[in-house]
Write a protein that binds this DNA or RNA. Structure first.
Lengths: 122, 122
DNA sequence: ATCTTTGTACTATACTTATAGTACAATAAT
DNA sequence: ATTATTGTACTATAAGTATAGTACAAAGAT
């Protein structure tokens, strides 16, 4: 399972925070393939947001093929398969990391601080 | 000086990203007392946003007494020393790292792959 | 069959965010 | 004095976000 938490102070939309937390939950292993997520209504009550806000997050993740929904049953973590060449992978990784570090820099963080934080997330 | 960078994917409003980066820039020493910030028009062009968006960010920081503006001259970092608590810094770093590890994961990369790539950038 | 639970799909409203455009006021340089 | 540059202050418009409310359809349990 996963413990959701919304922070209104950040300015990041709620539905997007939900999306991020599901994705990150998967990345860190807290959410596993096939696992059921809370129902849209249950999570809406839990997070004190509207049903539509949760539904929007789930919907977007379903479009991205990250979640699978069964009407009447629930929403589940899908099995993701990605097919890209090693060359493309390497290029994409560099691209992501460049963007990553440049954003971190704009907040005054060093690469070492980032690496340390990422180590903790493992 | 400081290198601003906006990320539209996060959903965090542009004016808020600008505010954050100025505050963190001051806290980390990348922006010093008395230093002049880019003009609203120059930064707007640089970041490819509207003049009003930058003005909104500067205005809010002026209300917070963090910036001092001299019409016709420019906008400057005020004498006030801004302190961002370790907790806040940590939170921001986590926020940034969470987002990026999620992105990396959605491309099929592990946290280790990201760390290795970042090590090379040092 | 009926009921409950699930996700889905609307309408309507309000607020926030971003843009475009225009104009004005204060300062500095000429 | 004139000009250029600066921040400020508007209006108007569009898009995004969140809420409330309602209704429907699919699946499961009884």
């Amino acid at each position: 399972m996963i413990h959701f938490r919304l922070d209104p102070k950040t300015g990041t939309p709620f539905y997007r925070q939900i999306i991020d937390q599901i994705k990150f939950g998967m990345a860190s292993g807290n959410l596993k393939t096939g696992e059921q997520l809370p129902t849209v209504r249950a999570l809406a009550v839990d997070l004190k947001v509207n049903l539509n806000t949760v539904a929007k997050a789930y919907k977007e993740l379903e479009i991205q093929n990250i979640l699978e929904t069964q009407q009447g049953t629930g929403t589940f973590i899908n099995e993701i398969k990605i097919h890209i060449s090693d060359k493309e992978k390497k290029h994409k990784l560099q691209e992501i990391c460049n963007e990553f570090s440049s954003i971190a820099f704009s907040y005054g963080f060093s690469i070492n601080e980032i690496i340390n934080q990422l180590q903790k997330q493992k």
